[in-house]
């Protein structure tokens, strides 16, 4: 139980986001209406993805430094759940956009950039599966992981902000969500939701990793 406190914390925080996020008051804004509550679900997916992919690249570097195959297993586990979060972010974003921007895909710079980012990570999984030797696969995919992460940061955080016409808040001359974040009620759900979803993702990643290490031990015997 002592080791699992963070799993419980993650579940409690996400439950808080699900219940308080739907029931507490939110600012009444034009066009957004009640969909501003997606801040607790759609936006947190991306924050969770960044955290999980950061963990993935950290383990990739650790693998390159040590050659310990366990780090490679951790790296792929975090990359998988991080990409899942990203896909969920894309899909939920399309649903949200359909009802606020008028169409699910409006070619918004941030939409395009995050789609490219997903494709880069899909290539990571294809690359991994194409290599047979364990250590070779670990080295090549760890290096690719670093490049993918380095490409993701400008794709998500810099290029959309440079472009003149983005629909996303905080991009292309639009006011950021920070204006709404200043509302203490939104913050009270938004920040715990980020932590909660991230912890949930870490939990799933550790289960993945443990299954991998068990099956590796069985193969070696």
């Amino acid at each position: 139980m002592k080791k699992n406190w963070w799993k419980i914390l993650g579940v409690v925080l996400v439950a808080h986001a699900l219940i308080s996020g739907l029931l507490l008051d939110v600012p009444r804004l034009d066009i957004l209406n009640e969909t501003i509550r997606n801040l607790y679900f759609h936006v947190t997916m991306w924050f969770g993805m960044i955290a999980l992919l950061t963990a993935s690249v950290v383990y990739a570097v650790k693998y390159l430094r040590s050659g310990n195959i366990d780090f490679d297993d951790k790296s792929i586990s975090f990359a998988k759940i991080g990409t899942l979060f990203g896909m969920l972010g894309l899909v939920t974003g399309s649903v949200w956009a359909n009802f606020t921007w008028g169409e699910p895909w409006s070619g918004d710079p941030k939409q395009n950039a995050s789609a490219i980012c997903m494709l880069i990570y899909f290539a990571y999984f294809v690359l991994r599966n194409s290599l047979q030797d364990e250590q070779q696969r670990g080295r090549v995919s760890a290096i690719y992981n670093i490049f993918a992460y380095a490409a993701m940061i400008p794709l998500l955080f810099i290029l959309p902000r440079l472009s003149p016409d983005s629909l996303h808040p905080g991009n292309g001359g639009n006011p950021g969500f920070n204006i709404y974040d200043l509302d203490i009620k939104l913050r009270g759900v938004f920040y715990p939701a980020i932590v909660g979803w991230t912890l949930l993702g870490v939990w799933i990643a550790t289960i993945q990793f443990r299954i991998r290490s068990v099956s590796r031990a069985l193969e070696d015997n």
């Binding site: 799993k7 579940v11 996400v14 439950a15 699900l18 219940i19 739907l22 029931l23 939990w203 799933i204 289960i207």
Partner: peptide, 21 residues
């Protein structure tokens, strides 16, 4: 009612994840 449904689904998924764990 929606909150209750979401709560039940989330609880189910969490219980399932615990059992896998």
């Amino acid at each position: 009612v929606v909150v209750a449904v979401i709560g039940v689904i989330f609880a189910g998924i969490v219980i399932y994840t615990i059992s896998v764990d």
